[in-house]
Design a protein around this nucleic acid. Sequence first.
DNA 1: CAATATCGGATAGTGAGACTATCCTTTGGG
DNA 2: CCCAAAGGATAGTCTCACTATCCGATATTG
Lengths: 209, 209
Amino acid sequence: MRIAELSRRSGVSIPTIKFYIREGLLPGGERTGPNQARYSQGHLDRLALIRALRDLAGLSVSAIARICAEIDRPGAAVLEQMAVVADALSGGDAAPAESPALEAALEDVRSYLEELGWKVRPEAPALLRLASALVTLRALYYPEMPAGAFAPYAKAALEIVTVELGERGALMLHEPALGLEGVVKGTILWEPVLLGLRRLAHEHVLGRR
Amino acid sequence: MRIAELSRRSGVSIPTIKFYIREGLLPGGERTGPNQARYSQGHLDRLALIRALRDLAGLSVSAIARICAEIDRPGAAVLEQMAVVADALSGGDAAPAESPALEAALEDVRSYLEELGWKVRPEAPALLRLASALVTLRALYYPEMPAGAFAPYAKAALEIVTVELGERGALMLHEPALGLEGVVKGTILWEPVLLGLRRLAHEHVLGRR
DNA sequence: CAATATCGGATAGTGAGACTATCCTTTGGG
DNA sequence: CCCAAAGGATAGTCTCACTATCCGATATTG
C-alpha cells in the first residue's frame, strides 16, 4: 500500500507518519522508485504499537524511538535488549541527580531487595525510580520510613509476575515468536490495567463503609 | 517566613512559586501589608506535595490545581471529594472519544466488574481508562480478548488495597486527620512503587532462567 | 498522451505546557 | 533614610509533538 492508505487504515495522518519515519519510530517504506515507496502490514502493526506506547503508556517519542531501534536490531541477547527497553521506559535520560538523601534511599532499596532475594542489575533504572519514590515518601510522611514499607507491593508484584511469566518464560498472552516486541507489550500495556483496577478497588472498598 | 526563605527551604525558585500561586496550586501568603505577605509551614508542605505529584506521578499543573482546590475546600463529603481527585488523576479532561470499539470494551469491563462484585461509580474515569486499555490490547493481540484477562491483576489489586486500607478505613500510613490529602498521597505516591517493583520482579524472574 | 492528483523528502511553522525574566511600585530594616 | 527585597503584571523562552507548505518526480485517468 502507499502512504495514503497506510494513513487511512491506521488513523494516523500523513504528516505524522512522515514525522515518525524521520524520528526513527517507523522504518521507511520499501522503495519502488526514486520517490515512491510501498508500505506493508508490518508498518500498520508498528503504528498500532506506537499509538499504544504513546496514548496508553504516555511514553515520549524519543523513548519510543529507542525501543523501536532495539526491536529492529536483528540478533541480540534478549536480556540485554530487555535492559535497554527497561531503561527507555523509565525515562532513561533522567539525570542521576546526586543528592545524599537519594543515595541513602538507593542503598536502602538495594539492601531490601537483597533481603527479598531478588537479583536485579545494580544499575536498573527502576531502582532509581523506587529510590526517589522513597525519598518523596519520607519527605511527606516521616523521614525514617524503611524500605520494608514496600513489602505489600513487593508481594503483590511477585504474584502478578509469576502469573504473567508462564511455563516457558513467555509474558502473558505473548507468543514467543514475537520476541522483544512481546516483552514490551507485556511490560507496558498491562500497567494501566493494574493501576486502573487498584483505583477501582479503592473506590469499591471505601464505598462499602 | 517571606518568599525568599520559602524558596530556599523548598528548593523551588521564586518565579515558580509565584506561578503556582497564580495557577491556584498554592494559596497566597498571609497579607501583612498592601504588598507584603508571610508564608508558613503549610506552604512548605504544599510545595512538597506539588513536587511529588509533578515529579513522581507526572501530573499536569492543571490536574494538580484541581486536586488542591478540592483539598482546600473546607467541609465536603469525603467520597465526593475522592471522586473529584480520582477524575483529576486520570486526566479528567480526556475526551470520551466516542467509538464503537470503546463502547463495547466499556460494556465488557463494566459487566466483568459486576461479576467480581465490585461496586464503583458507572462514570468513574478509571473505567474509561481500563476500557481503552482493553481496546488497545485487543488491537495488538486478538480482537476477542475478554475482560476476564484482567483477572490476575484484579486479584492482586484487591489484595493490595485490602492491606492499604487498614482497620479504620485509613489509607496505609495515613493519619486520618490528614483527610483528603492523605487519600491523595496514598493513591498516587505508591503507584511508582508498585510499577517499579513489578519491573524489577520481571527482571528477577527472567534472569533466573 | 496530457492533465491532474499523489508521492516522498525537506524545511519551516504552530500551539500547548511549564516555567522564567523583566519591569514597576511599594515596603522594611539597619 | 536608603537600598535590597517583596509583590504583582506582563511578556518571553524552551521543549515537545505535531502540522503545513514547497518542491520536483511519478502515477493514473480520461
